[in-house]
Design a protein around this nucleic acid. Structure first.
Length: 507
DNA sequence: CGCATACGCGCC
DNA sequence: AAACGGCGCGTTTGCG
């Protein structure tokens, strides 16, 4: 067995040199992450200090001690299955995905950047003109000064940041948009500058000699079991919003959608297409399954629109009487429940009064009683045991659940409620990734089907055109069947020549 | 000068 | 003030 730290790097190196790696591997850092996913760093030095109470000296014995302790604890916490059957096999899959990377059309990015820069410089001029001085628009402090002191825009009812200056975030700017013409220009400037500085510029610099960008997946990067992605983070590339299903096109002209232009620059190699598989409502399905809530399970079992069903329940109207506005509130409620949202936050995001918000939350929990009960159980577990765990034993320590600070305890409760849901969804997609990679191997399809991205509930593949249909059926079949919930798991599939222009396909 | 922090914002 | 879970990263600012 290969035992060590950062085995993903080792595997990548070995694969580049055409060498084989043993099938049995044990990444010590990842083992400790399973024991406690909230450590700062999973280095031998840190772990030795914290878990063995001594200094790490780099000796073989020191490594052995770390390994032995981890093995013992994985057993004690019943984490072996997750470790040996999910996280360790996943290591090789992630290594391959990182090596593969995703092809980027540098010309498209360059053209996009040129247009962005033009817009930015035009907007800077206008903003300086409108505000009567030149200043650093990127500085919230300076911007706040210009808006609320120089231009004396009415700031009543606008929140302040914790350092005391008046906030200039999007929400605030939208609130005061009608009070001065400069505000809309600043909103536009922010959008363009963000796209330029966070995405288009850095991604161009990260294009390798192979014309592809290679992210790094951090397997120990979250407290819930998810992966994170860095250098570049390909899990937060702007997404353009499509018009609602069944509705006529009401979105802005597609050619002017900047996120769309950015996504179009992520392309498939000639002869290949991209295929995106996303789990439909995976977290709500998980919640329905874990809580055993009959109404929510029935909705998924009958393949209903879950937000519409929720709306019908909280508004006490038949399904056909649910308006888009009602559905929108229900959708916010559904997501809010996963996140432990309170009445204040719900009021804020939905535009309802706090009174109304409270009413809706009460109504929600009386309609979906099992969800409330399940959440109470999880909160009790966090307080009594000091940790919460998901159904596969994935564990997150919750020392703050018994904090005397109300705020800390409340924050801890929200995290506790969320973890078993987000964590099981993460397990499911990880299991699917492992199984898909095994099948690709078994069927000798490694040159024709390449997994390239994973974005929490979505997998992106590069697939040879001639086997597209078999491939999408194989992949979606595995994703839907890899884990059994109390409700069906559903996957949506889209394909296209690039990441922007993808069309839904029906298998 | 490098570094940590605040602020802001992109995604699921 | 903050107020819904999980992330990574850009720029600015203040500090040593």
């Amino acid at each position: 067995m290969l035992i060590g730290f950062d085995l993903k790097e080792l595997i990548k190196k070995a694969e580049k040199e055409g060498k084989k790696v043993p099938r049995e591997i044990f990444d010590v850092g990842i083992a400790y992450w399973l024991l406690n996913p909230a450590e700062e760093e999973y280095t031998p030095e840190n772990l030795t200090r914290k878990y063995l109470g001594k200094e790490f000296d780099g000796s073989n014995t020191a490594f052995d001690d770390l390994y032995n302790f981890a093995v013992k604890k994985l057993g004690e916490y019943k984490l072996e299955k997750l470790f040996y059957e999910v996280e360790m096999p996943l290591l090789g899959v992630l290594a391959d995905m990182e090596l593969a990377g995703i092809k980027v059309d540098a010309k498209l990015l360059k053209a996009l950047d040129k247009d962005l820069e033009k817009n930015i410089s035009d907007l800077v001029k206008i903003i300086y003109q409108e505000s009567g001085e030149t200043f650093n628009i990127n500085s919230p402090k300076q911007l706040s000064h210009v808006l609320f002191e120089k231009l004396k825009i009415d700031s009543s009812g606008i929140r302040k940041t914790k350092s005391g200056s008046i906030s200039t975030d999007v929400e605030t700017l939208l609130d005061i948009k009608d009070r001065h013409p400069v505000v809309q220009y600043i909103l536009n400037y922010r959008e363009f500058f963000k796209l330029h500085s966070t995405y288009v510029l850095p991604i161009q610099e990260l294009i390798g000699k192979d014309g592809r960008v290679h992210t790094t997946y951090i397997q120990t990067g979250t407290a819930t079991g998810r992966l994170s992605s860095q250098n570049p983070n390909l899990q937060n590339i702007p997404a353009f919003t499509e018009s609602p299903a069944g509705k006529p096109e009401i979105s802005k002209p597609i050619g002017e959608d900047w996120a769309f232009r950015l996504r179009k620059a992520f392309v498939a190699e000639p002869g290949y297409k991209l295929a995106a598989f996303d789990y439909s409502q995976i977290e709500l399905r998980v919640l329905a399954s874990l809580s055993g809530d009959p109404k929510m399970m029935e909705a998924f079992n009958n393949n209903l629109d879950i937000h519409k069903m929720t709306a019908a329940n909280v508004f006490n109207v038949p399904l056909e009487k649910v308006t888009p506005e009602m559905r929108k509130i229900a959708k916010t409620l559904n997501f809010g429940v996963i996140y432990g949202m309170g009445a204040l936050a719900f009021a804020e995001t939905s535009g309802l009064s706090v009174e109304q918000a409270k009413k809706f939350i009460e109504e929600y929990f009386s309609d979906f009683k099992n969800i409330k009960e399940w959440q109470e159980e999880i909160k009790a577990q966090a307080r009594d045991l000091g940790y919460v765990s998901n159904i596969n034993g994935r564990r997150r320590w919750m020392p703050a659940a018994v904090s005397t600070s109300r705020q800390e305890a409340a924050g801890s409760e929200r995290a506790a409620i969320n973890m078993p849901v987000q964590g099981l969804a993460a397990d499911i997609i990880k299991m699917a990734m492992v199984k898909i990679a095994e099948e690709i191997d078994k069927k000798n399809l490694t040159d024709k089907i390449r997994p390239i991205l994973t974005i929490h509930d979505e997998l992106l593949f590069e697939i040879k055109g001639d086997i597209m249909k078999e491939a999408t059926q194989l992949i979606s079949g595995i994703m839907e069947g890899v884990y059994e919930l109390e409700v069906p798991i559903k996957v949506n599939v889209k394909t296209g020549k690039n990441w922007g222009e993808m069309t839904t396909i029906v298998n």
